[in-house]
């Protein structure tokens, strides 16, 4: 707790000091106080919340789609070597394409509205969750599969009582990474073509040389990503309580 407090106080102090001694104008390096004032103004006129809620919805949509497709496909790939051999080259190849490069295409195909942003976000969430699902499902010990078989468990019982709980720690690790990446995906989409959202607000601020506003948006994005990360950690804590029992001893 002490270190967190230190970080919170220390960082703005250093920043304030640099911005004063360097004598740079506010459109290059604004002081923390100027950014704070701009934050209050953006809050008061409602623009910040309006744009943030647009981005948040896209992010949540992207997470929902990315997470569901990646876990379903990941499970199938983990269970079938043939399917993996068939699809792996495409999946790996798709990962070598930077999202920034296909974002404009998606905006052309799916329009400048919410859908294209949701899809870009889900694309970026997809890969880490997919990989972790595969690793998680494959890491289930063979003895436990033998055990379930010797007890004549049905496929569904094996899935629910063995594979899901066994893969969950790894899967949640992937979701943590995915949650932070999902914000990047949505913003990249908004950058490319949009009239709403935090990504749009950044390009607007840049055009107006309203650098304090850019800072406000950047911090909002960080806050959003950290909140999502925190929520997944919380989920992890609750679902994996049995690991906590181990650690507390």
């Amino acid at each position: 707790m002490g270190t967190i407090l230190f970080t919170i106080i220390f960082f703005p102090l250093v920043w304030e000091a640099i911005s004063r001694w360097s004598g740079l104008p506010a459109f290059i390096l604004p002081s923390p106080l100027e950014v704070w004032a701009r934050f209050l103004r953006a809050l008061a006129d409602g623009s910040l919340l309006r744009h943030a809620s647009v981005t948040l919805l896209e992010v949540l949509g992207g997470l929902a789609i990315g997470l569901s497709t990646a876990t379903v496909l990941g499970y199938l790939l983990a269970k079938s070597r043939t399917l993996e051999r068939l699809l792996a080259p495409y999946i790996v190849a798709s990962q070598s394409i930077p999202v920034v490069a296909i974002a404009p295409l998606l905006v052309i195909w799916f329009g400048p509205g919410r859908l294209s942003k949701v899809l870009i976000s889900s694309l970026i969430v997809f890969f880490p969750v997919l990989i972790n699902t595969i690793v998680g499902v494959r890491s289930v010990p063979a003895e436990l599969h033998d055990l379930m078989r010797s007890l004549r468990a049905t496929r569904w019982q094996t899935f629910v009582k063995l594979e899901v709980p066994a893969a969950l720690p790894v899967l949640l690790g992937g979701l943590k990474v995915g949650a932070t990446l999902s914000v990047i995906g949505a913003v990249v989409g908004e950058f490319v073509g949009s009239e709403k959202g935090l990504g749009f607000l950044i390009s607007l601020a840049r055009g107006l040389y309203d650098t304090p506003l850019s800072y406000v948006v950047v911090f909002s994005l960080v806050a959003m990503a950290l909140t999502l990360y925190g929520l997944v950690s919380l989920l992890e804590h609750r679902l994996l309580a049995w690991q906590g029992i181990e650690n507390n001893r």
């Binding site: 010990p141 010797s150 709980p165 066994a166 994996l240 049995w242």
Partner: peptide
């Protein structure tokens, strides 16, 4: 049939 496996095969989450 009851089986006790060579490796301990307990479910760590249970």
């Amino acid at each position: 049939i009851g089986f006790v496996f060579q490796q301990t095969s307990l479910m760590p989450w249970r």
